[in-house]
Design a protein around this nucleic acid. Structure first.
Lengths: 137, 137
DNA sequence: ATAGAACCTGTAGCAACTACAGGATCAAGG
DNA sequence: CCTTGATCCTGTAGTTGCTACAGGTTCTAT
């Protein structure tokens, strides 16, 4: 592609995602419908690369597509305030911290099972791991 | 249902899940095809309640359906050894711990963004959160 | 001019459920 | 015994966030 544009493949590589993902983001309204070549191939700009990276980062951070849409509004519409973004970030911290707590519980439970399990030298009937999961309180 | 059997609704309630979920587990082979009444309603036993609870607990712990199938093999087939179960649990701990690390990074990133953001008193152009996500390194 | 890489649209599939629709059956009260 | 309403049945489609084709067109480099 020319000096002033990127193909969808180049764009995807820049953001370490698949071409199909970009299509999907376009379909769901996260990415714009870009100009095309005569033959119909999409032409992207630097701004689009930034936008796609923003989306990918938000997704990795655990925002849903809908939440990313909200965040993109802050970029696309000028009359929003930083406080709204801060509020979303704080809410997201709560979600993340609660996920962390759940996983820590889970890890502890697994550790305890393993600690009680001598492993290998007896059959399933006596396995404390299966026991812990199978026998309800 | 009679003294010796549970309906699918009672079963589901015992394991805090939906009737449809039990159907799904039957279709995917996690739950057995139980005997039926004359009219075709499923009849479950105590063993089935235990089994469903086992499945639900495994799922909550983060095992996939396929992994739960593996674990159920240990219950269904007598000639397995506890060591195999222990190995699966240990592998699962690795997965869980790596998820925890990811989330902690994420939380720290969000905290840092928030710390730098005074909030509300300026517009999106200057918002450090958007900036951190939008501007690539 | 032509080979082959990259693109196009559209549809179907993945996990792990959830939510109907449209009908049959069951348990309890009258 | 009969009716009512809750529960059950099967089957299909929807959810989220992609991913993977299929079958065809276009672009790029030799």
């Amino acid at each position: 592609m020319t000096a002033h544009g990127y193909s969808i493949g180049q764009l995807a590589r820049q953001a370490s995602c698949k071409v199909e993902t970009v299509h999907y983001y376009e379909k769901t309204g996260l990415m714009p419908e870009p100009p095309r070549t005569e033959g119909g191939h999409r032409i992207y700009s630097l701004v689009d690369i930034k936008r796609l990276n923003f989306i990918r980062r938000c997704r990795q951070i655990g925002f849903t597509i809908e939440q990313v849409k909200e965040l993109l509004k802050f970029i696309d519409e000028p009359d929003h305030y930083c406080g709204e973004v801060k509020a979303m970030a704080m809410q997201q911290i709560d979600v993340v911290e609660s996920k962390i707590r759940d996983l820590e519980h889970l890890r502890d439970a697994l550790f305890e099972m393993i600690a009680r399990c001598k492993g290998g030298n007896y059959t399933i009937d006596d396995c404390p791991i299966i026991d812990a999961l199978y026998m309800s309180e």
